[in-house]
Nucleic acid binder design. Structure first.
Lengths: 194, 194
DNA sequence: CAGCTCATGTAATACGTTACATGATTAC
DNA sequence: GTAATCATGTAACGTATTACATGAGCTG
């Protein structure tokens, strides 16, 4: 039920916009927080108009329809913003894998984790570059968008560090148990691909 | 497509288990990373058995069926673990709200953020208590589970801190603009509910 | 006039949630 | 004997993804 609030939120900040405009807004501003596909957007716009949370205020060339948020829509948006407890996301494929990492050898496990860390590091650096090049405005959406971007930076750095620490932890544990038991020859030589 | 890998992963660590057993395992170990409902689980077990990634190895009382992972299943699990790039979760309702926080007054916005921070703080403290009371074993699932728990701690602390910093940022900005413009009387007195 | 962008819509499929439905076995 | 636990399965619904389908208007 949050796609509709994404739409209402954007229409709340912009004056009037078409589905096409909104799709672009989603892609440039909300993509990392709440992605939406074209098909989903148009369907939802139809529903919102049916419920009178938004109105068609103009019809232009190529069947273009411009929507504007209604007072009922603003009401619904504010209600969702402050009264409804956000449900937190929980599914995380990468973390799920970690649970089962004991089922591959520890070299592969470490490699998996460190590889993830490197990817995150790159994404973080790209974000930092983008931040310098793209100058954001001083409107509400930009100001709050900057807060979300700050979150993104913290998140990626935290996760990268955790991945590296986890890999180190596994290495240590492997060494401890290798010393305790006998050192297995087949664990130290080169290995063919799975 | 990850529910099936959750099932394969658990069956890979345990010897044999029924749908009921797996459901409990999901609830106690994977709940925060990949929740599964009963209905989903039984359906997926049927599919996995159909594809011969798992086998029914025993049928007990009350229609109980015990499953065991097959060699093909292990293959599929290892393949998913190391070869398939995990797709990262992106939808985050709470962050989506932050984008639109400019559409309510800054008091309410701060309150929303600080409230979230307090909730996270409580969840973090509960996790820390649980950690002390529940002693985990030294098997793979427990060892890697501890890593995930460590992630949980870092995540909640990071997010709590960000929420508090974001609230502080908004407070500061509000004060700056209030001083710059004229101080509006209606923003300082008590306010009726929306 | 060819190719790009603008612009909307529907259909098929997959996944997840909630609810419904049933019944055997165990513990008190 | 009755309540809790064990145990499985199906149906309806909502939401998200991918693909299909269409065509008008602008730019070179």
């Amino acid at each position: 039920m949050s796609l509709r609030h994404g739409i209402l939120g954007l229409l709340g900040e912009m004056g009037a916009a078409s589905g096409y405009d909104l799709l672009k807004m989603f892609d440039i501003s909300l993509a990392h927080v709440w992605p939406a596909t074209q098909s989903q957007l148009y369907t939802e716009l139809g529903k919102l108009a049916g419920e009178e949370l938004i109105d068609v205020v103009a019809e232009g060339a190529r069947g273009r329809k411009e929507y504007r948020i209604t007072e009922a829509g603003r009401e619904e948006l504010r209600h969702w913003l402050v009264d409804v407890a956000p449900k937190r996301p929980q599914r995380d494929e990468a973390l799920l894998r970690v649970f089962f990492l004991g089922q591959v050898d520890s070299d592969r496990a470490c490699h998996y984790l460190l590889n993830g860390a490197d990817h995150l590091d790159q994404r973080l650096n790209r974000l930092l570059e983008d931040e310098r090049s793209v100058a954001l405005g001083d409107d509400d959406l930009s100001r709050y968008g900057r807060l979300v971007m700050d979150y993104g930076k913290r998140f990626m750095a935290m996760r990268r560090d955790w991945l590296r620490d986890a890999a180190a932890e596994i290495r240590e544990h492997t060494q401890r148990t290798e010393v305790a038991g006998s050192v297995r020859q087949d664990e130290s030589g080169p290995r063919e691909s799975l």
